[in-house]
Design a protein around this nucleic acid. Sequence first.
DNA 1: ACCACCGAGTGATCCAGATCATATGAAATT
DNA 2: AATTTCATATGATCTGGATCACTCGGTGGT
Lengths: 206, 206
Amino acid sequence: MMIDWSRLSRDYPILDGLPATLRERVVERSVTAGERLALQGETPTGMYFVLAGEVRLLRRSSSGRETVMQRVQEGFVAEASLDAPCYHCDLIAGASGKVLVFPRCDFEAALTESREFNQAWIVHLSGELRRARSRNERLACPTAAERIRHAILTEGDGRGLVVGSTRKEWAAELGLTHEALYRALRRLRETGAIHEDGGWIEWLAD
Amino acid sequence: MMIDWSRLSRDYPILDGLPATLRERVVERSVTAGERLALQGETPTGMYFVLAGEVRLLRRSSSGRETVMQRVQEGFVAEASLDAPCYHCDLIAGASGKVLVFPRCDFEAALTESREFNQAWIVHLSGELRRARSRNERLACPTAAERIRHAILTEGDGRGLVVGSTRKEWAAELGLTHEALYRALRRLRETGAIHEDGGWIEWLAD
DNA sequence: ACCACCGAGTGATCCAGATCATATGAAATT
DNA sequence: AATTTCATATGATCTGGATCACTCGGTGGT
């Protein structure tokens, strides 16, 4: 089955600059919910690009805690693994779908050979870094309401955002229990600070 | 005054691959504690490398909260600003010292011209991204003790770490009030979970 | 069609951390 | 030398979130 590069290039500028040599080496793969693409400690052999479904980058600490470090419905996952001798996290499919797998050595070769691709990758990494730092800021907020406000205002378009996951998963991402999230959302709704409509949440007051 | 490139290259591999053209354009600058190197919203004009003292990347939210996103005693600060139209954070000197300023356009040019430097920059960005994600994980820990444990085990060498800042600043970095940190540290000390010796903190029990 | 599972949502209780207050000693400023 | 400032440290109190417990409704599997 052929990969629709024209659509992908349109939606993902970074794939537009993909060298032809790398494009030839990529393989499409189906993943089923719960499937483990990679485990903590393994040597990365490829770079994954999620086309459909969901892939999560999650870390299991020795104390048993599980933290989702990244959750991707479309785009690259575990970008920083490229320069790591082994995965620091597990790569788990959260929902069935499709991924592109770029062989690691070909990906690295493409980065050294193509200026354009290289540039695009730096921009991509920088963006991810900003996003991760933004999430740090969010998690440093002491109250649930502040974390919710931060999420709405810094993700999304400034007015509101579409939460692309279940409330329960969103709660974990915000470093809250689901109960705390439900209650905080209700309080904010009742005081008129937010407006909820399905997955869409808008920040009104301040 | 001349810059001691041989020492810098030894200590910072990334500077080793620095193209000569960029090396010629860099300027050394003294900063005094509290000095603002850049403010949120400004267009980045240079990339900063801290030689001595401390520079902080901090974000002021509209609610008045201040969060330190990055704290650098030696190394690059605000790496992700290179690909941003404007700073998302302030750059403030936390302690007097010296910084190298690489003019933005020259830095960008060097990245496109030098493969070696480019590669090193990608490695650097990936490392920062992993560090930021690790901090995400830490801040998602619900208790002070768990955050402390995480910090000790993931920063530092695995047994312990040297906290390179005041307790108060460390508390903020851990998303805690300083009171909560002092109390948690005392509890851990009294139960024999950690051993403190000045700036050195070691994790003993589990 | 049935059952098991899971997310949504709420109540009750408890505890950890935020907040406020205050003391002390060291360092920086005058 | 005197004064201000700030980090360290601890106590008292309060509150927000964790935890436990439960209901309800949808959905996927058998």
